[in-house]
Nucleic acid binder design. Structure first.
Length: 790
DNA sequence: ACTGATTGGGTCTAGACAGCATGTC
DNA sequence: CTAGACCCAATCAGT
């Protein structure tokens, strides 16, 4: 189908696509149009990666906008949100506006009301629903990207419930679900009352094969000689082979450490194939990576990058990740060794994809478990860059003939698994039942069950009573924790409190059924929990912890408290560390909130200790231990540290709201602990870091020079300030931010601080082991840092 | 006696969403 | 119930 034949799009859209070099629609796209994508029909498109799914979405959304509507594009990852945003922003040329909203992407709800297309993560959409964003009821089209993620144990239910809610809110809204090729696309289509486009078609040829011995055997029967030289690994031979043809490769492995080791080794291959020019580019890139942070991970990455090889996993900082991805797309980097992050993330195609490890450690399986077919297919789908490569190759590695056959059977000839709803799991329901009640989607038990009937779970379930049983368990839990109230008596609507959420009264009325049924209402606390987007179990833990505290909780106490909630991804306790942290536990037991489990309940005690470890990490961060020492001491990447700190910040923010809600007297303590994590400083610096451009390092230097609060900045000797802050420009900006009248540094001479004597007040002097490892100006006595002596 | 290779035991294992109010060295 | 790569240290072979 030629794009000229398309109708119903905004004027200028066709020209725009032609400008992008698009003349013909790909077959799946044409099929989607025939199925009514541009006429507001529901559609499920199960097609391989990179075969033009986005175009299907774009056509649907643009035609919806042209009809005067508004579209929402739901993505699974924040990184994808910004990628799509850039793509859709091009439409502004013909007057279609786009807005993005994710957790860290700033934008208020009302602002989005004016946009034609909104891009958001599924969690963000869920949150918008909970907070009753008015514009949601204006939607006429919603696109759900990577809808097969409904199968994901953790995040799938959110997507599922959110789609169900949006549909209940706007019964006539068009739903377009984009999925990888899965086993049961038809079931998803049934659930969504949608037409189905299900195809294996790809715009660029994909050959799948297995490498064994010196040969690469493809699914079409062809064979390619790829000899393994000397003691090198199979993947090294494969990388070199394709590099000589000018192609890049992507190697998927199953652990971070393997990714790093593989990158190092493959650097030995790629460095022999570089031009002088590439070498300089890579050296620059390596420099940028080193600048980003000076941790071990960065050094290793930079070293590998100099040879044209990189690793990619969640321990990288987001800057590093972007640098690596961009350089790979530009073909500066020749090979990336990655954990599965990359398969799900942004678009980084390579000529040859090598799936080296097809088993992964899975504690629930008690050992190594094979990857899902779907996952492997997603990885293999990264092979081949349309327009750049003549074809793509996806290769699995076998060390024996038997294994080679097994791989063909298991992955190459096999169909992906069906998508199964994970909604009936208790943790998922806990959250969503509360949210459904709090936002007025259901006001009775029957109404709730009726709503749940509209989910994929219900349409798949063969066990009719199950959902009801779990729902009752969950209601019981929510009630006993004071998040909801049940009233089986009268029908007079005794609203729990503030009445709330008028936005969805129509939906609520719709869902309501029968007066004699048990009435459900969220308590004020329940509303807060739902709005804060907390797992009710996290909220309960925090509430109990705060309520149990007889005296002002310490930072460590609060950090450990939030670290043991299910919303905090746990830090793994290494062998030997249980002893170390057990000791720390006895030392500081009094600070911890709530009752510690007995040491004899091994599992729960271990959890308690690993939360203590995470808490201790946060405390170290909040006593100005520098990044390198932390990543070293806890053996984590710079990205992990950032992640922990972010999560803690979020949870402590939530804890502050909860504290206020339950009238806890420790609100201030929580706020202070949160501020300390946010800036990574001890209490004494909290005032200083509130000044713009002053972070933990500068604040500490100022403090040591006798400038202890913002007011001091206004009166301090400029020479001293200049010495401490080094740059003239920064000094001026900071003085200005502090509200000094004459911030100019013209003609000011650097001058050393007057008082070199006092080290200032001791930080955390109540804990003798605590004040080590703080970043000082001189850093001279770094060696005295008491590492590992907890 | 020193060095480099080999072997064996012990250890450890992917990912990343959200509130709220503004801005690192 | 199930694995396998890596690291480090100890041992061994070769010069």
């Amino acid at each position: 189908m030629n794009i000229e034949e398309l109708s119903g799009l905004p004027p200028g859209a066709v020209d725009h696509f032609r400008g992008e070099g698009i003349e013909e629609l790909y077959p799946p796209q044409a099929e989607a149009v025939e199925a009514g994508a541009t006429e507001g029909e529901n559609l499920v498109a199960a097609v391989p990666t990179a075969s033009g799914k986005t175009m299907i979405a774009a056509l649907s959304m643009l035609s919806a906008v042209q009809r005067g509507g508004k579209a929402l594009y739901i993505v699974p990852l924040r990184a994808l949100a910004s990628e799509k945003k850039e793509e859709f922003e091009e439409y502004e040329r013909f007057g279609v506006t786009t807005g993005v909203t994710t957790g860290n992407y700033e934008s208020t709800s009302d602002w989005l009301a004016t946009k034609d297309i909104v891009v958001a993560t599924s969690e963000k959409v869920d949150s918008l629903v909970r907070n009753g964003a008015d514009w949601l009821s204006d939607l006429t089209c919603v696109v759900s990207d990577e809808v097969h993620l409904i199968d994901d144990r953790n995040r799938g239910p959110t997507l599922e419930v959110t789609l169900a809610k949006l549909r209940q809110l706007n019964p006539r809204m068009q739903v377009v679900a984009l999925s990888a090729t899965v086993g049961n696309a038809d079931e998803i289509a049934d659930w969504l009352d949608a037409a189905l486009v299900d195809t294996d078609w790809r715009p660029i040829d994909l050959q799948m094969g297995v490498h064994y011995g010196n040969a690469l055997n493809f699914d079409d029967g062809s064979t390619r000689e790829v000899p393994v030289e000397g003691s090198e690994k199979q993947e090294a031979a494969l990388v070199r082979d394709i590099l000589r043809e000018g192609g890049s490769s992507l190697v998927f492995v199953n652990s971070r450490r393997n990714a790093e080791a593989a990158a190092r080794r493959l650097g030995g291959v790629s460095k022999n194939e570089l031009t002088a020019e590439e070498r300089t580019e890579l050296a620059d890139l390596a420099e940028e990576i080193r600048d980003d942070s000076d941790t071990e991970t960065s050094k290793d990455l930079a070293d590998a990058v100099e040879h044209g090889s990189a690793f990619h996993h969640a321990g990288l900082s987001s800057t590093q990740r972007t640098l690596v991805e961009d350089a790979f797309r530009d073909r500066t980097l020749k090979v990336i060794s990655a954990t599965p992050t990359l398969a799900a993330g942004v678009n980084t195609p390579a000529r040859r994809v090598i799936v080296r490890d097809w088993r992964r450690f899975d504690p629930s399986a008690g050992g190594m478990a094979p990857l899902d077919v779907l996952e492997v297919h997603q990885m293999m789908g990264r092979a081949g860059r349309p327009g750049l490569d003549p074809y793509g190759e996806a290769v699995l590695l076998a060390t024996s003939h038997d294994e080679s056959e097994e791989l063909f059977d298991r992955y190459i000839w096999a169909d992906p698994e069906p998508v199964r709803s994970k909604l009936a799991a208790e943790p998922a329901l806990r959250t969503h039942v509360l949210a459904t009640i709090a936002s007025g989607f259901a006001r009775t038990r029957d109404g709730l069950l009726e709503f749940l009937e509209a989910t994929l779970y219900a349409s798949q379930s063969s066990e009719p009573g199950r959902l009801e049983t779990v729902t009752d368990t969950v209601l019981q839990y929510l009630e006993s924790n004071d998040f909801i109230e049940r009233d089986s008596g009268g029908s007079d609507s005794a609203e729990a409190d503030d009445g709330a959420d008028g936005a969805f009264t129509s939906a609520a009325t719709l869902a309501e059924s029968g007066d004699r049924d048990e009435e459900l209402a969220a308590t004020s606390l329940g509303h807060t929990v739902s709005r804060l987007y907390l797992d009710p179990m996290s909220a309960a833990e925090i509430v109990h912890g705060l309520a149990d505290a007889d005296e002002r909780p310490t930072a460590l106490g609060l950090y450990q408290l939030v670290s043991r909630t299910p919303d905090m991804y746990e830090l793994y306790l290494r062998s030997g560390e249980d002893e170390q942290f057990g000791e720390l536990f006895y030392e500081r037991e009094a600070e911890l909130l709530g009752d510690a489990p007995s040491e004899f309940e091994e599992e729960r005690f271990e959890d308690w200790l690993s939360a203590l470890k995470t808490g201790k990490l946060l405390e170290d961060w909040a006593t100005e231990t520098d990044e390198e020492q932390l990543t070293d001491r806890y053996e984590i990447g710079p990205g992990d540290l950032r992640g922990k700190v972010d999560t803690a910040e979020w949870l402590l923010g939530a804890a502050e709201s909860l504290a206020a809600e339950i009238d806890s007297e420790w609100t201030v303590a929580v706020r202070e602990a949160r501020a300390r994590v946010e800036h990574g400083v001890s209490e004494d610096l909290l005032e200083l870091v509130s000044v713009g451009e002053v972070g933990r390092k500068r604040a500490r230097r100022l403090y040591d020079a006798g400038i202890e609060e913002p007011a001091d900045l206004r009166t301090a000797d400029k020479g001293v300030v200049l010495t401490v802050l080094k740059g003239e420009k920064t000094a001026e900006t900071i003085l200005e931010n502090a509200g000094r009248e004459d911030p100019s540094m013209d003609g000011v001479e650097p001058k050393s601080a007057g008082r070199t004597d006092g080290d200032g007040p001791a930080i955390g002097s109540d804990d003798a082991d605590e004040d080590a490892a703080r970043t000082e100006t001189g850093d001279a006595d770094d060696s005295q840092s008491s590492l590992g002596d907890f």
